[in-house]
Simulated assay, not measured.
Amino acid sequence: MIRMGQIIGVKPEEIEEYKRLHAEVWPGVLEKIRDCGIRNYTIFLREPENLLFAYMEYHGDDWDADQAKMAADPETQRWWEINKPKQAPLDTRAEGDWWSPLEEVFHVD
Rank of each mutant, 00 (worst) to 15 (best):
I2S: 08
I2T: 15
R3V: 09
M4V: 01
M4G: 06
G5M: 11
Q6L: 09
Q6H: 13
Q6E: 09
I8K: 00
P12R: 13
E13C: 07
E14A: 14
E14S: 14
E14G: 01
I15A: 05
I15V: 15
I15M: 06
E16D: 15
E16F: 03
E17W: 00
Y18F: 14
R20F: 04
L21Q: 12
A23C: 06
G28K: 13
G28T: 06
E31N: 15
E31G: 13
R34H: 15
D35E: 15
C36M: 00
C36F: 02
G37R: 01
Y41I: 09
R46A: 14
E47Y: 05
P48T: 14
E49G: 11
N50L: 09
L52F: 08
L52Q: 05
L52D: 04
F53S: 05
A54K: 07
M56N: 11
Y58A: 09
H59I: 09
D62R: 04
Q67K: 08
A68R: 13
K69T: 11
A71S: 13
P74E: 12
P74F: 02
P74Y: 01
T76N: 12
W80D: 03
W80M: 09
N83W: 00
N83P: 00
K86A: 06
K86D: 03
Q87A: 02
A88P: 00
T92V: 08
A94K: 13
E95W: 05
W99F: 02
W99V: 01
W99H: 02
S100T: 14
S100F: 03
S100R: 12
F106M: 13
